[in-house]
Amino acid sequence: MNTKRAGLQHFLLRWSGVAAFLLLWEMGPRLGWVDGYFLPPFSTIVVEIFNLFADAYLSVHILVSVWRALVGLLIAVLIGIPFGILLGRVYPRTAEALSPILRILSQVNPFSLLPVFVLFFGIGETAKLAVVAWVSVWPVLFYTMTGTRTVDPVQEKSAASMGISPGELIMKVILPAALPTIFVGIRIGATITFYILIAAEMLGASAGLGFLVHNAAMNYQIPRIYAGATFIVIFGYLLNRALIFIGNLLFAWQENSSTTVTANATVTTPSWRPGRLSAVAAGIALLAIVLFGGIEVDKVNKEAASTDPGAHSRHFGTPVDSGSGN
């Protein structure tokens, strides 16, 4: 009971900052401390978010953005992990020689690449996916290299003592041992990606969360800008939390992650652990999102192109109201 109360107190304390900020946001415009036109009170924003949901457009934009982030990230993972293993373990001397180039390339600004990709691939999905993949491939690659290099030598030694083949050593020892580190790279890639993607969508897209905000701004729908931005913040926060949660779930086996039982302790039944079934389920879900998301994104793009060729400044599917707002 006591710990429960302490937990509640901690929870309240933790979120008191957010509460105070939101209160300030609500009161500021209402009491006339700031111009309510440029900064509408928070409650107006909440209503606007619900409006966006009710219009069913928000879900389309979410889907489009998530699909882009996911596919781009998948590309980055499919490139980054194999190359990370190759450079980290198989050809360490090559990796050493390549390190300055990799470092310089990883510093190439994604926004300065965007125009190149747009010229290269056109304004469609490929340019955005290329930017997303470019941004997230570096953390995945570097963390894979680091992770595969820092495997406990004692583990490798004991596997080697059983006469393990080099291929098996990578699949059964090095890869699993490096996976937590690789996952950190993927998580960093995912968060940076989401960030850059939203920005890229503002610079040129016909759907997606970034486009939503950009479009609202073009039409001077100020509450909608805030609503979109707030939603993106919450979404990004939840995404980050979810990835941390998944990481903890997957890598609960890490040494410092939980208490130990002693020989004379009662045998406890292990709590739920992700097994083969959940891995398959996750894989199928991922595939489904990529496939159906792709079909949906294609549909959205075609629709946008047919209703409004040339310009990309109109909100997908909304009634044309850009003329009235200013």
Partner: peptide, 21 residues
């Protein structure tokens, strides 16, 4: 402790999105 979630949310706030504002 009180400001940690707020700062995490702030860190998620993409200034590019807020550029217009």
């Amino acid at each position: 402790t009180a400001t940690e979630p707020l700062m995490e949310l702030f860190a998620q706030a993409n200034p590019v999105i807020l550029a217009h504002i």
